[in-house]
Design a protein around this nucleic acid. Structure first.
Lengths: 138, 138
DNA sequence: AACAAATTTTAGAACAGTTCTAAAGAAGGG
DNA sequence: CCCTTCTTTAGAACTGTTCTAAAATTTGTT
């Protein structure tokens, strides 16, 4: 995804039924401009927005991350280490976890073949399959 | 694993280079007697031990869970929901996650076939692969 | 059994990450 | 513009976990 104009971002927010406030526009630019997949935490995004954009409180960053996640613009990652990570790549894919550096690395979905999955228990269905490959130093 | 005598448990602790204190013996019985795989948190185990055994502080439960994990008697599970879960089944296996009830269900390893895995990044090796199948209501 | 040394437990404080609260501010529609 | 609704905010509150320093227990040695 290339650098977006404010208008692009505003449309995106409107489509998600979120008012395009100054704060949300700034956060959306940070999250969705550029084409790299990002793994961010509330704290890291907060620091980032403070460094460049308008003043945004940490509470708003949390609110916004959850709203974006509910709207399908972000995905919450099953993280280690107590912190919640959000992934700007909402396609199905998996992760390497470098526990020592608390870092996640994307693995494209087609690089892992899940040959057969068990049945979900009665009354429930599979929402999503997450594979986390934990790394350690050689 | 069947109900163990204190002696069984004490030997197990000694083998892990842990002094068999009253507290650790009580916790080990709760964790390892009976043959069901258990998914516990520090808090849940603390309540359980208070209900039946000697007084054990929450700090000791945390300490013990980490010591048992380091000794390979427990495994820490990549959980959702901020809480840390410990699994008495230390064999390779995977989990269903019922997010609504914050419950984990074991999936035997042979019920999931991981056909091919990507290479670990240079200088690192794969420590462990966790598959979490997130469930939702039908 | 008594002693000293080493380890463990403990209560409570401290801490990190996240959510809540209630008041002030901004956005959208007539 | 004005009114209603939604959003942001600072700070308090909360949850799960770790830390601290003192008291208690365990172990090895006599």
């Amino acid at each position: 995804m290339e650098k977006q104009t404010d208008m692009d971002v505003i449309d995106r927010l409107r489509a998600a039924k979120l008012r395009p406030t100054r704060q949300r526009v700034a956060l959306a630019h940070l999250l969705f401009d550029g084409d790299i997949d990002r793994h961010i935490t509330a704290e890291s995004l907060h620091e980032e927005v403070l460094a460049t954009g308008p003043r945004v409180s940490l509470a708003t960053v949390y609110n916004t991350l959850h709203q974006f996640t509910d709207a399908g613009l972000l995905r919450e990652i099953m993280a280690a280490s107590g912190k919640t990570y959000f992934d700007t790549n909402t396609a199905d894919h998996h992760h390497f976890l470098d526990a020592k550096n608390a870092t996640l690395i994307d693995i494209p979905e087609d690089q892992i073949a899940l040959a057969h999955l068990p049945e979900a228990p009665a009354g429930q269905r599979i929402a999503r399959v997450d594979v986390v490959i934990r790394l350690e130093d050689e």
